[in-house]
């Protein structure tokens, strides 16, 4: 589904990703862990198509498409979703009409009929239960005046409604208390299936108690220095990142 090969990315001539490779297949959950500044968020931004990053070499194939060649909205319509670490507040844009527009753009792209207001409301109300979100948040402007936890839940709600093929969760656990974390993770677990995949970017092992990954990758200095199963995350929790980073530096 997603195949990243030897990706090099820099920001204002400063290299951030230095030869990152990753294979994601349908039905899999991959966790990407690593210390601050290792390039985790850069990876999420590059995959979703944010401006300001220069791809110096490497390729990213997504469902057989050259992902880096597509505009952000086309990536989204092809089923790629990014849950933001810091969701943006958009004053004056109603949360419901925004999400209806987004869903219908994606449906149009797939050649499906657009949902009318009534069908959409039925869908969104069902999905709101998944993230235990209060209904009045639907009437508010996108993320405006939402608490940190409400913003993250709103991201998961959007994911549930848009039903992506590949979802990237960028530090969705940051700033969440344990109840919100449980709700957010519960949402992800209900959405996972044989045909979709998740890339969960996190600094802490804690989230992986709730969203159990098939693979764990450790990112350092813009490269994956170690891949393993969920046990690797537990080891990192115990020993920190330093031993791995030192090891990779001595071996390279």
């Amino acid at each position: 589904m997603l195949s990243i090969k030897d990706l090099h990315v820099s920001v204002e001539d400063k290299p951030i990703l230095n030869g990152l490779s990753l294979e994601v297949k349908p039905g899999e959950i991959h966790a990407i862990m690593g210390p601050n500044g290792s390039g985790k968020s850069t990876l999420a931004h590059v995959l979703s198509g944010r401006d300001g990053y220069t791809i110096t070499s490497g390729t990213v194939q997504y469902k057989g498409l050259d992902l880096l060649d597509l505009a952000p909205e086309i990536r989204a319509r092809e089923g790629l979703f990014l849950a933001f670490q810091y969701p943006i507040e958009i004053p004056g844009v109603n949360n419901t009409s925004f999400l209806k527009k987004a869903l219908n753009e994606i449906r149009k792209h797939r050649g499906e009929e657009e949902l009318d207001a009534i069908d959409f409301l039925g869908l969104i109300k069902k999905q709101m239960k998944l993230v235990e979100m209060k209904e009045d948040l639907l009437k508010r402007p996108v993320n405006q005046g939402f608490s940190g936890g409400e913003k993250k839940r709103n991201e998961i709600l959007q994911m549930a409604v848009l039903n992506p093929t590949l979802a990237i969760l960028d530090e969705t656990d940051s700033g969440l208390d344990i109840d919100a974390l449980r709700i957010v993770a519960g949402g992800v677990n209900k959405l996972r299936s044989e045909s979709n995949a998740f890339v969960v970017i996190t600094h802490y092992q804690r989230l992986l108690d709730y969203i159990v990954p098939d693979f764990v990758h450790v990112l350092s200095n813009g490269r994956i220095i170690r891949s393993g199963t969920k046990e690797l995350a537990l080891e990192l929790e115990e020993r920190g990142y330093d031993w791995l980073i030192e090891k990779s530096e001595t071996s390279s």
Binding site: R50, A71, P72, E73, F81, I88, I90, K101, H109
Partner: peptide, 16 residues
């Protein structure tokens, strides 16, 4: 630009 990008990542074209 952050708000524009956010909307784009949800499938909405830049002009929209």
């Amino acid at each position: 630009p952050d708000a524009l990008f956010y909307l784009q990542t949800r499938g909405i074209s830049k002009p929209d």
